[in-house]
Structures are given as structure tokens and as C-alpha cells.
């Protein structure tokens, strides 16, 4: 099913994109959702196309019929008028049957899709475990891929690489072709982890742990977004994503390891104070205290909060606010 969709979607992409491409302005490929660079986002895009095709097969003819009726039976057209024609059992069956059939097809599609991109173990990733990917395993990671712990604060992202003992704030760097497994939690309010070109959304909630998985197929820079409104600093809470070939990734890890910023439970508490990342600051940490993720979850469960100051962003130019800006 999934593979067959691929061909359709290429045609559909042409049809959909041609008229709207020029609307996107000058940036190349502004429609992030139409240019997935990983199997999870790819599957999500293909389900989008498949769904649109099935729906269009019904809705376009209905729309055409509607327009035809509106023209044909306008009073001026003097078409036959039959005010007694108000019931037809055969038509009633058609009328219930067509939507029923459509929903049946879509329900099957949806059922498949749920498992294909299930954040707790997407089937498309299992399928995507091609030999080249196996060959590209990161040295520090003996198992099936790379673990990344995602911790959100008000209003920053912290990406902890527990097996590498490093962390990176507001930038996620991953090797290409390697399955990345995320565990996510929040120190404060609910956020929503989203990299449009690589993987769909998953909530990041305080005192709870969610998971997500993805693979980046191509090296490149991507945009990570906090999709769930989380308070005054929310709009500046996006993060950069870089997918690097294996060698470059390892070089990046080594640089992070040499960072003189350490991350312990105590320094995390300082990091988690309300901060609006106005300048898009990126920080790297070395020697991350093991168990930070579990610590944050436990603290949130125990009632730890990082309160938002009163009328925090009423004036973003004054010193009171700028103390919280990065």
C-alpha cells in the first residue's frame, strides 16, 4: 500500500504544487510538509496525499454536480420543475452508501497510518533499516540507534545525549541514517516537539514521558518548532536541527565534549529559569550529570515549578524583562 502510494504522490505533488509554488514567495521549498527528508515525515506526507486523493474522488464530482444543479435549475433557465420529487429509496441508499464507502476506505488507511508512524515505534523505521543504515552506526552507540532526551523549560529546548554525556540547548544535532529515539519531558508546561521535515508532533508534558523516533535521510539544516503554545516566550522557542554525516557528527560530539559548560542538577535549575530566547542562542554542555531526565520528571511530579513573573512581557525593552532574555 505504502509503496504504491509513492508513485501517486509524486504526480499529486506536481498537481498540488504547481499552482501554489509561486505563492510561497522567494524561499526555495517553502512547503516543508511537501519535502520530507526522513521516513516518518515521508510516511505522514504520503498519507496526506492518499487521503486527499480518496476525498477528491468523491468531493470533486459532488462539487461539480452542485454547480451544475445551481446553473441548470435557476429559475431563469426554465428547467422542468417537479415539486413532488422529494423521496427516492434508491437515491437514499446511494446517499448513505457513498459516504459510508469513503469512510470505510479512509478508516483502513488511517488504521495503517497510526501504526506506520506510531511515536512509540514507527513501523516505517523498522522497514527503513536498510544495510547502509546499519553500516552507519555511531561508534558510541552499540544498539539500534542514538538516544536523545528532550527536556523543555520555559522557553528553551535541552537535548541531552545520555550515552555521550553531552547536551545541547536549542540545537539538535543528529547523524544521518541512524534511528534516533527521543524521550521527552517538560520541566514546566506542555510543549509540542515538531520537526516538519523529519517527524510529526508529540506533546512534551511535565511529570510525564513521551517518546518519538525518526531517521534523517539527508544531511542538512532543518527547523524544529514548539507547536504548543506555552506562554509569553513561546514564539521564540524554536530550535535548529542539523543532520550530519557520521564523521561530521562525531567531530561535533568531540567539540561538545570540550565545552567548559557543565550540566548538573543544580545548573539545570539555573538553566530552567524563565528565559526568552530572543537571539536564538545555542549552548553546548559537557559532563552532563547522569539521570538528569529522570530527575526532571521526578521533580515535576513532586510539584517543582518555575513560575512566570507577573505581566512578564508587558514591556520587552525594559531591564526587568531583558534579564530573562537570551
Amino acid at each position: 500500500m505504502f509503496n504504491r502510494l509513492k508513485n501517486h504522490s509524486r504526480i499529486a505533488r506536481l498537481i498540488v504544487l504547481t499552482p501554489v509554488a509561486f505563492l510561497g514567495g522567494c524561499a526555495d521549498r517553502p512547503f516543508w510538509l511537501f519535502h520530507p527528508h526522513g521516513p516518518v515525515a515521508g510516511a505522514e506526507f504520503h498519507y496526506l496525499i492518499a487521503d486527499v486523493i480518496v476525498l477528491s474522488a468523491i468531493l470533486l464530482p459532488v462539487t461539480a454536480l452542485l454547480i451544475w444543479v445551481l446553473r441548470r435549475y435557476r429559475a431563469a433557465a426554465r428547467a422542468p420543475h417537479d415539486p413532488r420529487w422529494t423521496h427516492s429509496t434508491r437515491l437514499e441508499i446511494v446517499v448513505w452508501g457513498i459516504p459510508l464507502l469513503t469512510v470505510g476506505v479512509l478508516a483502513y488507511l488511517s488504521y495503517q497510518g497510526v501504526f506506520a508512524v506510531n511515536p512509540y515505534g514507527p513501523r516505517v523505521l523498522a522497514r527503513a533499516a536498510a544495510p547502509e543504515r546499519a553500516a552507519a552506526q555511531v561508534s558510541a552507540e552499540p544498539g539500534a540507534g542514538l538516544e536523545v532526551d528532550v527536556i523543555t523549560t520555559d522557553w528553551q529546548w535541552l537535548f541531552v545525549y545520555p550515552s555521550l554525556h553531552i547536551a545541547s540547548a536549542n540545537e539538535l544535532v543528529v547523524p544521518t541514517h541512524v534511528p534516533i529515539h527521543f524521550r521527552l519531558t517538560s520541566a514546566t508546561v506542555t510543549n509540542d516537539f515538531f520537526i516538519p521535515q523529519l517527524v510529526g508532533q508529540i506533546y512534551v508534558m511535565p511529570g510525564m514521558r513521551t517518546e518519538q523516533s525518526m531517521i534523517a535521510d539527508r544531511p542538512g539544516a532543518y527547523h524544529g518548532i514548539d507547536a504548543e503554545f506555552s506562554g509569553p516566550g513561546f514564539s521564540w522557542m524554536d530550535f535548529k536541527v542539523r543532520a550530519l554525516p557520521r564523521a561530521k557528527f562525531e567531530a561535533w560530539v568531540r567539540r561538545a565534549e570540550h565545552s567548559n559548560r557543565r550540566l548538573s542538577f543544580r545548573t539545570f535549575a539555573r538553566f530552567a529559569r524563565p528565559t526568552v530566547n530572543l537571539a536564538g542562542t545555542i549552548t553546548r554542555f559537557s559532563k552532563v550529570q547522569p539521570g538528569l531526565f529522570a530527575h526532571v520528571v521526578a521533580q515535576a511530579k513532586a510539584g517543582k515549578a518555575y513560575p512566570t513573573p507577573y505581566a512578564f512581557t508587558e514591556d520587552m525593552h525594559e531591564a526587568k524583562f531583558l534579564r530573562h532574555a537570551d
Binding site: 459532488v62 428547467a79 415539486p83 448513505w96 469513503t102 488504521y111
Partner: peptide
Amino acid sequence: SIATMLVGIPTGVKVFNWLFTMYRGKLH
């Protein structure tokens, strides 16, 4: 997901019925 899509069935029926109301009508 499936429960949500079920709503689409009666909604679709309504659209068809309005269409057939206008069919052979005299539209002003």
C-alpha cells in the same frame, strides 16, 4: 480516528439531500 470520520457520513448525507432538494427545483 474512525469515530471521528463516522461524523462525515451523516454530514455527507446532508450535502446530498440539499443537492437533491435543488434538483428539479426552481432556484431563486
